[in-house]
Design a protein around this nucleic acid. Structure first.
Length: 230
DNA sequence: TGATGATCATGC
DNA sequence: GCATGATCATCA
C-alpha cells in the first residue's frame, strides 16, 4: 500500500543483516532458546518481534497495513534454502475458493524473506540480507495451477493426498502429531474427520528467489558467498 | 542428498 | 482447539 512503509520495513530488516540471532535476541530483550529442535519457530518469532510485526496467530499478513508477510528462510553456508516453506493451513471448504481469493495467494503476494544460516548453534546463526519479493507472473501461474489441482484433490477426498502433488506448492501434514484430526467433510458434504494439512512452498522456489536476488550461487558448484551481502 | 511425513512451542 | 512460527527424522 505505502511504498514509504515498505522501504522503512526493508531498511529495518536489512539492518539485521550480518547479526546473529543471539544479538537480535539481546536487542529485543528476549531469551533465545538453546535447542532449536524444541523451539522450531523461535527464529521466525524473534525476527517478527525485532521488526515490530503485528504478531500473534491471527490470519492475515504480518504487517497488515502494508500487506507484507515476513518469512525466515533457513539457508546453508552458500545461501541455498535448505527447507520448504510453510505458507498457511488448508482452509475448510478450499474447494469453494478461487485462487484470487485464496489465502495462499494473499500470503505470497508480498513477502519479506529473511535468510538465516542454519547448522550452527542457535544463538550464533547469522542473518542474511532481507529481500522484499513478489512472485513473477510465471511463478504465479504455476502457483495458480497448483492451487487449483490441490483444491480439486482436497475436494475429491483425503485418501489420495500426498506431498507429491504440485510443482511449486505441496500439501503436507500440519499438526501436533499424526493422530490429530479436524472436523471436515467428505466429498458428499457429510461430516468427516480429516488430518490437518498445510500448504508449503517447495524448496526450489525459495532457492530461485535467492538466486535471482544474487544471494545464492546459481550453479551447484558456485563459489561461496556471504548471504548478508550481495 | 533430497523429499516426505511427523513433530515442537507459543499465542489467542 | 487451532493457526502461526517452522525444523526434525527417516527412507529411498
Amino acid at each position: 500500500v505505502s511504498a514509504a512503509g515498505e522501504r522503512e520495513i526493508l531498511a529495518l530488516a536489512r539492518s539485521l543483516g550480518g547479526r546473529t540471532l543471539g544479538e537480535v535476541a539481546r536487542f529485543v530483550g528476549r531469551a533465545l532458546p538453546r535447542d532449536p529442535a524444541r523451539h522450531k519457530g523461535a527464529a521466525g518469532t524473534l525476527i517478527e518481534r525485532a521488526l515490530g510485526a503485528d504478531g500473534g496467530s491471527r490470519h492475515g499478513p504480518d504487517f497488515a497495513a502494508l500487506g507484507i508477510e515476513v518469512k525466515t528462510l533457513p539457508v546453508d553456508a552458500r545461501g541455498r534454502a535448505v527447507e520448504s516453506t510453510f505458507v498457511c493451513c488448508v482452509p475448510q471448504r478450499s474447494k469453494d475458493e478461487s485462487w484470487e481469493r485464496s489465502p495462499v495467494r494473499a500470503k505470497l503476494a508480498r513477502v519479506l524473506w529473511i535468510p538465516i544460516e542454519t547448522h550452527a548453534p542457535f544463538a550464533e546463526r547469522r542473518i542474511g540480507s532481507a529481500l522484499l519479493w513478489s512472485p513473477s507472473p510465471a511463478l504465479e501461474e504455476t502457483l495458480r495451477a497448483d492451487w487449483e489441482d490441490l483444491a480439486e484433490l482436497l475436494a475429491s477426498g483425503a485418501e489420495r493426498i500426498s506431498a507429491r502433488h504440485g510443482r511449486a506448492l505441496q500439501l503436507r501434514p500440519k499438526a501436533h502429531d499424526a493422530s490429530v484430526r479436524l472436523r471436515g467433510a467428505d466429498p458428499d458434504g457429510a461430516p468427516a474427520l480429516e488430518a490437518p494439512r498445510g500448504f508449503y512452498l517447495r524448496r526450489w522456489v525459495t532457492r530461485q528467489v535467492l538466486e535471482e536476488a544474487g544471494l545464492a550461487p546459481r550453479a551447484a558448484r558456485g563459489a561461496a558467498r556471504c548471504i548478508w551481502r550481495s
